[in-house]
């Protein structure tokens, strides 16, 4: 018999998780869709559900030691409106779902769901976010890039809860984000592109480029980014061809009911090109 639990504290949640394997239910905006069943019947969970969305101690967003910390049960809408939320993440959240869903959905849910089309992930990869996990005895911190290992696969152990996400405070002079969805709102990305750049005196101090929905996880190449570091912005046009080719060889989109491989790839590269053009301009 599956027994649902509603813990009243993080401590209680972690103790429960040390005793049995639960399905963590946060905002449930992914889970209830995935577990949908004939209306009027109870969704079938193979493991008992553990409802954490009510845990107040994880519902926060604040600056601490020069970093932005976002608790696991904080809603996307709360994150959207916080003054310290990095621009890129604001842009992204605005393209996610609809306001009603955003009040319910969480960032930790989007991360653990680990969909190739999970929108926040593009921002988290660009910002080098860290994921903080707790079990009853330990805490560990993993970079988002290491945390997500494959389509719907993460490093989380069964007894671990994502407790917070840690981001650097925004320092980028320019940010670009485009989500290409089948309509203007409430839609799943066919392609997503994000770019961050920090320029001082025409010199590129930092540049980061990421693609969503064209690979099993978010695609980001530090090697290609490094080739641009320290360059003068005027050098970008002559590097463009090589950069485009570099990403073209990495992008591996799929054909599905929402779009096709050729379009996804072409559009991803077009978006990159537009971003590169905006640097030299």
């Amino acid at each position: 018999m599956v027994e649902a639990r509603i813990p009243h504290s993080l401590q209680e949640a972690l103790i429960l998780m040390s005793q049995a394997t639960y399905t963590i239910v946060n905002g449930a905006t992914d889970l209830l869709v995935q577990k949908r069943s004939w209306s009027g019947t109870i969704p079938k969970f193979s493991q008992p559900p553990l409802y954490i969305r009510g845990l107040k101690e994880l519902d926060y967003i604040c600056e601490r030691s020069g970093m932005l910390e976002i608790g696991a049960t904080t809603s996307l809408e709360t994150i959207l409106h916080h003054p310290k939320t990095p621009k890129i993440l604001q842009h992204i959240i605005l393209t996610m779902a609809s306001p009603a869903i955003r009040h319910q959905a969480t960032l930790s849910g989007n991360i653990q769901n680990a969909s190739p089309a999970g929108d926040s992930l593009v921002g988290l990869y660009l910002l080098d976010a860290s994921i903080v996990l707790h079990n009853r005895h330990h805490e560990r911190v993993i970079s988002i890039q290491d945390f997500i290992v494959d389509v719907r696969k993460t490093m989380r152990e069964a007894d671990e809860l994502i407790t917070k996400v840690v981001l650097p405070i925004d320092k980028f002079s320019q940010c670009a984000y485009t989500k290409v969805g089948p309509r203007k709102t409430d839609a799943i990305a066919k392609v997503a592109f994000g770019g961050l750049i920090d320029i001082e005196n025409d010199r590129i101090r930092d540049i980061r480029i990421a693609f969503g929905a064209v690979y099993k996880t978010v695609l980001r190449s530090r090697k290609i980014e490094e080739s641009l570091m320290g360059k003068d912005r005027s050098a970008v046009p002559e590097m463009k061809h090589v950069l485009l080719e570099g990403y073209a060889s990495l992008i591996q989109p799929i054909d599905d009911q929402r779009s096709n491989r050729w379009y996804r790839k072409t559009t991803a590269l077009n978006l990159l090109e537009a971003f590169l053009d905006s640097i030299s301009r």
Binding site: R183, K184, T185, A187, Q257, R258
Partner: peptide, 10 residues
Amino acid sequence: TDYIIPTAAD
């Protein structure tokens, strides 16, 4: 989710 009809924003 997959059959796309317009929203007010479209």
